[in-house]
Structures are given as C-alpha cells and as structure tokens.
Amino acid sequence: MRVLVCLKQILDPDVPARDFQIDPEARAAKRGGANLVTNIFCENAVETALQFREAAGGDVKITALCYGESSAEDCLRKAMAMTVDEACLVERDGNTNPDAAAVGRVLAAAIRRLEQDGGPFDAVLVGRESGDWGVGQTGGVLAEELGRPALGFVESLQPGNGSVTLRRQTDVGIEVAEAEPPFLVTITNNEDNVPRIPKTRDVMMSYRKPLQKLGLADLELDSEEVRAGSSIFEVEEIFIPADEVECELAEGDTLDERVDQLAKRIHEVVASIG
C-alpha cells in the first residue's frame, strides 16, 4: 500500500508579535526574524499516516510531498526522521504565495509523476488548513484535480479488509466511514495524532533516505501558467490590525456606587453596539 502526505512549510505561527511584519507591496508576511516550521496539521497528517502503517503491520510505504522553497527540505527531512520512507520536493522558484488552486495543480502533477514511477497512492493525506493563511482549500482542490473522492476533518485511519476506516470530526460528533482506495482525506488534530519526536538514530538515517527534487519544468508546468491559474481569490490589502484599548474606570465613593456605575456603562456600551 502507498500513502502520500502533503506538507507545507510556513512562518512560525509562534513568532513573537513584534517580530511579525508585513510587506504591503508583496501583500504577504515578511520572513523577518521568524523561523520556518512545518504546518502543524501537516505534521498531524504525517503522524496519522505513521500510525496507520503501524496498525497495518508495516506493509505501507509513506511518501512526503511538498511544494515549496528549497528551505522546505528541512520539513521533508523531519518527516523522514519521523520514519516516513521517502520524500519529494517540488521547488517553487519565485512564485511566492501561490493560492490553493495553484498548489493543488502542482501537487496533482507531482503525484501523477510519482505514481508513474512507483505505482498509485491508495491514500493522500493533506493537512486540514495551514497556520499562515488558513484558507483550508488545498485538500479539496487537489482531490478535484486528481479526480478522487475526498473527506475532510479526518482524525484517524484504520486498516480494514480491503478498505480503510476513517474517523471524522463533525460539529455533532465523530463520523466513522469506510473508504475504498484510492481517496484523499484532510487531517485534523486530536490528542492521538500529536506528532512524535524522532529518535536520534532516525534523525541521522533521514539524511540517507531518498529525497527527490523536481522543478515545475519536470512536471511540464509553466510557472506563469501556474500563477495565472490562481483565481480563487486575490489579496487586495494586508495589514496588522491595530489593537486599541480604551480604559474607563467606574467612578463612585462607595463600592455600591461604583458597581452601579459599572453596570450602567455596560448597559450603555452593549446598547450602542446594538
């Protein structure tokens, strides 16, 4: 069985507020002093795939795929340190901040290419959304591009008899589904798919595992064309909202007076918001 996990490298969402800067020209966040990390839901997806392999008894090959800058190699190495078997990086030259349509198209092309070489992927796992833009569209677009059924907000995969049992989070509870491969799922987090810390030996071994690098040309895609295909939405303006705090103290000589005053003001403010 073959499983593919898609990864995205993003700016560290834990970057201290003062280090987070915007480039209004490019209409994107500046790298600044922030670190680059693997998007957390993508790491949950890696962990989910690893647990699926463990439950299936080993005969599952896991591939990690990323469309990103060369720095994203770190994310793929880390996935391999977590014991993913192989990885592929599609290098994103210059096309900063592609949207889900562009990413979906590139990933689909890469997946077809990988399938040509190594056989079809039974399951494709995509993080539910990324911690930078949080659009949450890539999984759906990719499924469409691949022409495969998809299910969102999945938290675990269990091997069944010729099929896979999926647990899916919904607003009203957990939904359990049976899926026949091939399919695509987007992965959300739960307490069981917290990404594991790699063993040091596996960290060292990750440098000996195969990491294939492809350019858009290898996928017979044109950078301009990919960019032009980005049409889901356009960023018009990006800014950091200014936090303004107005502080007003309830006046009064006694505690009761102050409480009355406070209650009156709350009433007024709530009424004014209407």
């Binding site: 834990d14 507020a17 003062r18």
Partner: peptide
Amino acid sequence: MMNSLESRQHPFAGTQFSRVD
C-alpha cells in the same frame, strides 16, 4: 522544550519577545 529548540533555537515556546527587544 526540545521541539522549540529544534525549530526556534530557544527553549521558550510561545515567548512574546525577540532576542533584541
């Protein structure tokens, strides 16, 4: 702590400050 050390080179995940603030 170790996760933070690996990705941010400091052990204080969630700090509000940069190294030069």
